[in-house]
Amino acid sequence: MPATEYKTKQQQKKFYRSGAWVAVRREVLRRDNFECQECKRQGRVYTDKHDPDKHKRLDVDHIKELEDYPELALDFENLETLCVRCHNKKHNRFMFQKKKPKWDDEWW
């Protein structure tokens, strides 16, 4: 696909549903032993057996972003396994801050 074909959400969704991506994703997960590579770098172990509540525990991440480097879309060297938490942290998604209390519990 040409570079412009991964710019929209719809184009990216089509790519991520393609047979080529599904096959490459499966191979990258196997290569990385179904372990989050960022957790591993931090001395932790996170595999697909953790977080039983999650339907999808591991993602395959494009190290160089898909929309910027479409020619690397299926390149094994540009892909790594990350747990959902590390993947979201990398992209600054779903980072919740601790809520402030609605009222001050201090008594005067």
Rank of each mutant, 00 (worst) to 15 (best):
L72K: 12
E35C: 02
K9E: 09
E38Q: 12
Q10R: 15
K56A: 08
K54V: 05
E65M: 10
K89V: 12
W21F: 02
E71S: 08
R57Y: 01
H87A: 01
R30A: 15
E65L: 12
K89S: 11
W103Q: 13
K7H: 12
K90E: 02
W107S: 11
P52R: 10
R25L: 01
L29Y: 03
P2R: 13
H50S: 06
F94Q: 11
L79F: 00
T8N: 06
E65S: 15
D75L: 02
G43H: 00
M1F: 07
K56V: 14
D68T: 14
K89D: 12
G43P: 01
E5P: 00
H62N: 04
F15N: 10
N88W: 01
Y6F: 15
R30H: 09
R41M: 04
D105I: 06
D75Y: 05
E77T: 13
G43A: 03
E27N: 11
K14V: 10
P101G: 04
V22S: 11
K9L: 12
D68M: 08
Q37M: 13
P2Y: 12
E35A: 00
F96E: 14
Q97N: 08
K7W: 13
V84A: 07
E80V: 09
E35Y: 00
D75K: 02
E38P: 01
P101R: 09
Y69W: 14
H50L: 09
C83T: 03
C83F: 01
F94A: 13
L79M: 01
M1K: 08
D59E: 11
R41L: 04
Y16G: 06
E77Y: 07
C86D: 08
T8W: 05
Y69E: 10
K14Q: 15
R57W: 00
Y46E: 08
Y46V: 13
E80C: 11
K14I: 11
E38T: 11
K14N: 07
L58C: 02
P101Y: 08
H62E: 02
W21Q: 05
Y16P: 03
Q10A: 15
A3T: 15
F76N: 13
Y6A: 05
K98G: 06
N88F: 02
H87L: 00
K99N: 08
T4M: 11
C83A: 02
Q97E: 10
A3L: 08
L29F: 04
N88P: 05
K49H: 06
R93S: 07
N92C: 08
K49F: 03
A20D: 12
H55F: 12
